[in-house]
Write a protein that binds this DNA or RNA. Sequence first.
DNA 1: GATGGAGTACTAATTCCCTAGTAATTATAT
DNA 2: ATATAATTACTAGGGAATTAGTACTCCATC
Lengths: 130, 130
Amino acid sequence: MARRRSEMLTDVELEFMIALWEIGTGSVRDIMGALHEDQQRAYTSVATVMKILDDKGFVSSDRKDRALVYSPAVQKRDYEGRSLKNLSKTLFGGTPTALVARLVDNEDLTDEMIQEIKEIIDTRIRKDDG
Amino acid sequence: MARRRSEMLTDVELEFMIALWEIGTGSVRDIMGALHEDQQRAYTSVATVMKILDDKGFVSSDRKDRALVYSPAVQKRDYEGRSLKNLSKTLFGGTPTALVARLVDNEDLTDEMIQEIKEIIDTRIRKDDG
DNA sequence: GATGGAGTACTAATTCCCTAGTAATTATAT
DNA sequence: ATATAATTACTAGGGAATTAGTACTCCATC
């Protein structure tokens, strides 16, 4: 611990966290193997970023044999929520409503997607009632 | 022009763009005055960032008298969409549905907000039909 | 005990962001 | 014309991100 300058992950840090979230727990070598990218990275580069993530509090580490095994200290769903809150705050005046309005504004969205979104909302409303 | 390393604005750049979007068009001094922040910034700092935004293509500049007058080259709604697409891609597997699901997952959301969101969706669906 | 392999820590180089000062330029007022 | 004010261009320095090399530690095996 100590860094924690930003609450948000950088692009590369996010890539690494996504890999770790997928495998749940893993060594540097495991994480290196789980990365989705085309770009090759040296083993030591991966190790360095994992240490930074540890410093920032996004992961925790345990020593198994001689290797460090990393686990997420922040769950993906939490970070997703944090990201949405951040985006909502910085760009949509803190109102999630405006965010959704812009989202469904997008021409790329198919009717099916809109329907799915509608169902998500309706489900949430029904859950509140019940 | 020339930089355009990232499609996305940094935090400070976004602050400045928000100021410019609000006033529509303005000189360095105008933008400095429109900034929402507590933090004071030197005139030359604002000028430097505006030049970078120009280099990156987010604004255009015209000389009026001796001063440069900046205008957005990217509209706020476009950047909002770009941000959502980016977030959707990096964190939600490219599916806006998952993004909305996480958004309405948030306990902070009041019933009123959920209702508003529902109306936004319903309006969009009706618009498609009509 | 020496050697080798695996892993971590340390360090470094590059690049970009952020801030702001100084110099140069241009216009205005006297 | 000269002094003054405003603005931009150039420059620099600190901090962080990214990448990766080197050195060092540990353990196992010969």
